[in-house]
Amino acid sequence: MSTEIEEAGAVRTRVALKTRSLSVHYGDSPAVRDITLEVPTNRIVAFIGPSGCGKSTLLRCFNRMNDLIPAARVDGEVLFHGRDLYAPDVDPVEVRRKVGMVFQKPNPFPKSIFENVAFGLRINGFKDDIGERVEQSLRAAALWEEVKNRLDAGALSLSGGQQQRLCIARALAVEPEILLMDEPASALDPTATSRIEDLIRDLKRDYTIVIVTHNMQQAARVSDETAFLYLGELIEFNETERLFTNPDNERTEAYITGRFG
């Protein structure tokens, strides 16, 4: 892969996360098969593919969210700072603070705007000024100006797009290294979607982002690298521009030109 060339020069890109022969089964049916890939630091990686291709399942391996599904079984390794996230001595609670997640439908807690962002800080024993950290997080999520005068208002009073940015702020508050986004704009209108996309590009400076999307234009617009999954297998993982203009694999080409999926 050509991730070794950075704008600054020929610096080898650091790897934020990598998988080795990762497979996931729900009961007896395989959802993800033998996937090996590397997510480089401070980049945006998009997973695309038709519905049911396993892209969300793969994403949910990165913060052990699949643990919540009793029938899910994960084989292989997910390496984060050289440690397998699925090793028996790794606590998923610890993983999830370092690898944050934003979900498909905005899911703010039915509490105030402030408490939504403060919750992660409180449960993780944040020792500093919570108010200040809440403000930083809301600023980072480009929501501060809209809510600074009504932090005590209920989060459910916000619009869908604002709710999703609140969920991003909430995830950022606990200082993750990687942010997983599972179709974060699919429930939003085009204006809110483009704000979220701008935000995602801004966040790349400080975070590594993995985004699942069913929207190929979105993947093309925001991501640096794109993985195409089909029937649980990784068909192609390439630079986004390359994958969308001159893919190596003919199935990728068939998919992006709309011939199936």
């Binding site: 999830r96 944050g100 899911n107 703010p108 807690f109 992660g120 606990v174």
Partner: peptide, 17 residues
Amino acid sequence: PNSLREASYGLGATRWQ
């Protein structure tokens, strides 16, 4: 809704939290 549980676990909350 399960989405609330996921949001909470996603922030690193324990089951009891």
